[in-house]
Amino acid sequence: MIFLKLFFEFFKVGLFAVGGGMATFPFLSELGPRTGWFTQSQLADMVAVSESTPGPIGVNMASYVGFTTAGVPGAVVATLGLITPSVIIILLVARVLAAFRESRLVQNIFYGLRPASAGLIAAAGLSVAALSLLDRETYAVSGQILDLFRWKGLLLAAVLLYLTRWCKPTKELHPVVFIAVAAAAGILFRFAGA
């Protein structure tokens, strides 16, 4: 029963992804290969669409994965799965708001969870980087180390890194701007070779 499975998987994501937005990404990066519902490069496309459309990123990703897996009902079920643990937890926490905020135990748990979230996202990010910046197939055939790298991609990554982190006038711009720039570069320089 695909809908039950979708709901259950996204319930898990909603329950364990801590730190908003991108925190759902490592869970989905593990979910795709395990279930065969979507590939890593489809997931990367979903991140891009989720970042450039309105709404919370985590919710957008759930809707997208759900739709890709089982159409419109899939999108609804995945989204409901994602938000159900949130609703339950917040309704419980709201009753004990003051106690929760001052609880040493809760603070200590989150002291451990936040760096873990950074580590999980970094690991999942590396898998997308390997996909878009390395060309392992050509390397496997030619054995030439220079063939391992997608030079156009690396150059674009360097430019985007500069624009988003160090270049004062552009670094505060919305991610959708950089996504548009990258799409234009991809078309202009035939990134997919198509």
Binding site: S41, A44, V47, A118, L160, L161, P175, A183
Partner: peptide
């Protein structure tokens, strides 16, 4: 082609998200 370019940008955005979380946590 567009999405091949966009995927490069996604790497950069994820990297930046990790840096932000890193600084805080």
């Amino acid at each position: 082609n567009a999405f091949a370019g966009i995927r490069v940008c996604v790497c950069v955005l994820i990297f930046n998200a990790v840096c932000r979380l890193w600084k805080k946590s």
